[in-house]
């Protein structure tokens, strides 16, 4: 089992957001998480990534069988956890190239590898840019600065391609994308799929799941996963909305 979440409770400033999440993800699987706004999807992603502002009050997250609790944000990332942000931050003054080189080499150092030689690094950048069809000179610019919404999302997939994570959590990477960009992002994910890695995609739209076929669809509602099913669950949600789920909960 790659990821095992058991009865996870998490809160921020004393306000409980996650109220007992259970989730199992195996290597090779794609999971979709859906659910109404504000139910804790991004919170779940942040907690898995180790964001300190959230306090885990109960339960545990096992990754590759190990408890993540004591692992820092960066060590989780180095162990292969990647979070595609719903709202990627703009970091003026840090170029994407510099950012990625630092990330790649810090991860390599963690694994006991030498830094990637400059030439190899640039070749890797080019290759991954092609994969996500980034043609413009985005990579010379500051991280996300002045990027359009779609460019920011593509940039997340580009970074994912660079870092080749084991567990990628993509938080609404499809939101705000035009049809072409959606296809590019989905293609990026599909090309990176391997039997030994897994994806958790958070989305509001069934259309993404036409491109990235999920093995499981979960509904997160008021801080808990209240329903799980196959990809047909997404179609059902698209058709009927969340009201019936809310009713079921009452």
């Amino acid at each position: 089992m790659l990821l095992q979440i058991k009865n996870l409770h998490a809160s921020i400033n004393g306000k409980e957001i996650l109220k007992g999440v259970d989730l199992d993800v195996r290597e090779g699987e794609v999971h979709a998480i859906m659910g109404p706004n504000g139910t804790g999807k991004s919170t779940l992603a942040s907690v898995i990534a180790g964001r300190e502002v959230f306090e885990v009050t109960a339960g545990e997250i096992l990754y590759k069988g190990k408890d993540l609790h004591k692992l820092s944000i960066e060590d989780r990332a180095r162990e292969g956890i990647f979070l595609g942000f719903q709202y990627p931050v703009e970091i003026p003054g840090v170029s994407i190239t510099n950012f990625m080189r630092t990330a790649v080499n810090e991860i390599r150092k963690f694994k006991g590898l030498d830094p990637l030689p400059g030439g190899d690094f640039l070749r890797l950048m080019e290759e991954k840019k092609r994969l996500v069809e980034i043609t413009s000179n985005l990579t010379n610019r500051s991280v996300n600065e002045g990027f359009s919404g779609g460019e920011k999302k593509k940039n997340e997939i580009f970074q994912m391609a660079m870092l080749e994570p084991v567990l990628a959590i993509l938080d609404e990477t499809d939101s705000g994308l035009d049809i072409d960009a959606l296809r590019i992002v989905a293609n990026g994910v599909n090309k990176l799929r391997r039997p030994d890695n897994a994806f958790v995609v958070i989305t509001h739209y069934q259309r993404l799941l036409d491109y990235i076929i999920p093995d499981f669809v979960h509904v997160l509602f008021e801080g808990r996963i209240v329903k799980s099913g196959g990809k047909e669950l997404a179609l059902e949600l698209e058709e009927k909305g969340y009201d019936w789920i809310k009713k079921e909960q009452e």
Binding site: I73, E74, A77, L83, V94, F99, A103, E106
Partner: peptide
């Protein structure tokens, strides 16, 4: 959080941001 999530250590991340600020 963004930088560290990419595997960049806290110290280095801080450095990058400070340098970017000065830039």
């Amino acid at each position: 959080f963004y930088l560290r999530q990419r595997g960049i250590g806290e110290e280095t991340a801080r450095m990058l941001l400070m340098f970017a600020f000065a830039d």
